[in-house]
Design a binder for these strands. Structure first.
Length: 141
DNA sequence: GCCAACGTTGGC
DNA sequence: GCCAACGTTGGC
């Protein structure tokens, strides 16, 4: 199983919207690196759901359902979409500020390339984030 | 709302 | 094929 992180603006389509919508098409990605990450997703992969612009935190866990397929919203170009389903909100959101503080999370795309919208997460990074999500905010040294 | 960082585009 | 200009994203 692999782990990923996707970004979304809560005002556009937040984690609550994903929960409400059930199985949802993750489309509209127009960046090659992000697209290639979508294409590498497999059914059952875990997906951390990050709120950009507002919230600035990882707020939920989702799951990939089905392989990548051509993006229905792309009139031209070679773009891909996948389907996601919400699993559960994190017990506590993990804020970007905390991720930036954690020494073992400095290689996350979220830290290194703020503009990538779909990125891989290592198993170690994933478990650290899930641990942080048990603790709430401001317990970091 | 601003602006830095990044990716993409297009002129040469 | 290079690189400057432009548009977009997203943290602040």
């Amino acid at each position: 199983m692999n782990y990923w992180l996707v970004k979304s603006e809560p005002s556009e389509f937040g984690f609550a919207a994903l929960q409400a919508a059930g199985r949802s098409v993750w489309d509209g990605v127009r960046n090659y690196q992000a697209r290639n990450n979508l294409r590498a997703m497999k059914t059952g992969d875990r997906v951390l759901f990050y709120h950009s612009r507002e919230g600035l935190a990882i707020v939920g866990l989702a799951e990939v359902v089905g392989e990548a397929y051509p993006d229905p919203t792309a009139a031209t170009g070679d773009w891909s979409a996948v389907d996601l389903v919400a699993r559960q909100p994190l017990p506590y959101p993990v804020p970007l500020t905390r991720i930036k503080q954690h020494p073992a999370l400095q290689n996350l795309g979220l830290v290194r390339n703020g503009r990538l919208s779909v990125m891989p997460v290592s198993a170690e990074e994933f478990s650290i984030i899930m641990e942080l999500a048990q603790q709430g905010e401001d317990t970091a040294a």
